[in-house]
Amino acid sequence: MATRAAEFGFRRAGFADVAAGVALAEELMGSKIATAEDVMRMDVVTGMTAWVRGNPVDGVFLTLPLSASGEQAVRNGTYVPAHPDPAHLAWQGKDVAGVYIGVYAGATKEARRAVMTAAALMRMEFFAPVPAFARGATEDGKRSMASLGFQPLEGGLPDLCVQEPAVSGSEAA
């Protein structure tokens, strides 16, 4: 995944990059998200949560692979995006039952293009067999999610959207 992400200028984020990415996301969204400390905790658990591009950081992508109980928690509204229960995350080397897209944002046109392309390709190449969840924090975000095939999902978090698995279980095998 790191090799594929690097093709779009993304790299795994250390603490300073996570802090810059969180600050960028909050500025672009006009709202608070998880703290850099919480994002790093999630990244340590999953091994694939925090991604940034640029120096200084101009793009951020936060991806949370979910356990089976995490996937159900997202669907029923008990999932806490900024501080998820560790049992809701797919720990490194464990089965992924879903993926929650915490943030994908870019400060420039080039960064937004890279974020969107990386999001679409990673979804299809790495997470096609599982549902993907995201919330539209901005009107641009809602439009970009719709362009990627996300649909509103009732019963979960406010503004929650889902893209059900792109392949069936037999195709994934």
Rank of each mutant, 00 (worst) to 15 (best):
Q163R: 12
S144R: 13
I101F: 12
Q151G: 02
D95A: 15
T3H: 14
A50T: 00
V167A: 06
Y100P: 06
A173V: 12
G141H: 08
G169M: 10
I101Q: 12
S31T: 07
A82T: 13
P84L: 06
G149I: 06
L148T: 07
M1F: 13
T3Q: 15
F133H: 09
M42K: 05
M42N: 07
Q92Y: 09
E139T: 15
T63I: 01
F127D: 09
F8E: 07
D159C: 05
L64D: 02
L28E: 10
T117E: 14
V74D: 07
A23N: 04
V74I: 06
A68H: 05
D17Q: 07
M48N: 11
A5V: 10
Q92V: 15
V162G: 08
V45Y: 08
A134W: 06
L153I: 00
D43T: 00
E71R: 15
Q92N: 11
E110C: 03
P84G: 03
R75T: 08
E125S: 07
L64I: 00
S69R: 08
A97D: 02
A173Y: 12
P131Q: 12
N55L: 03
R53T: 08
S147W: 14
V22H: 11
G54F: 01
E125Q: 10
A25L: 04
D17W: 02
E139Q: 15
R113Q: 15
D140G: 11
V44F: 12
G14P: 09
A119F: 12
D58T: 07
V39T: 05
R135S: 01
S170Q: 13
E110L: 08
P165L: 11
F8Y: 13
V80A: 13
Y79V: 03
M40G: 00
V103Y: 01
A68C: 01
V52E: 04
Q72K: 14
A107S: 15
C161W: 12
D43H: 08
A2W: 08
E37G: 08
A90E: 09
V60L: 01
A172C: 04
V80Y: 05
D159F: 14
P56L: 12
